[in-house]
Amino acid sequence: MQKHAASYAQIRENPRFQALVGKRNRYAFALSALIVCAYFSYILLIAFRPDWMARPLAAGMTINLGIPFGLGIIVLTVLLTALYVRRANREFDPEAAEIRRQVLK
């Protein structure tokens, strides 16, 4: 840890670093909130309105609202992950690399 103390001190003052952290945190927390909300609306519906979840999707069908809802969350999970990885690869990584380069020079 000691041998990096100088780099750390430099980065601490770097406004670009603060901006990166802010940007990344906002994005990460917003996406997390999204998935938590989606999942807990599903869980709360199961907990308090199971009858609603058991309603058939269309007349004469056995598939009910609960099944596409659950599968939808699985799909959402994968989509949001893909979104995050794309932005992190394209935007956050080069930015962090740039900050590192400035310091380690």
Partner: peptide, 19 residues
């Protein structure tokens, strides 16, 4: 149906870990 609760629940932790 309750099996699906486990399927979904065991997956939704992953994006939070990723993010």
């Amino acid at each position: 149906f309750d099996g699906l609760i486990f399927s979904v629940g065991w997956l939704v932790g992953w994006p939070v870990i990723t993010f």
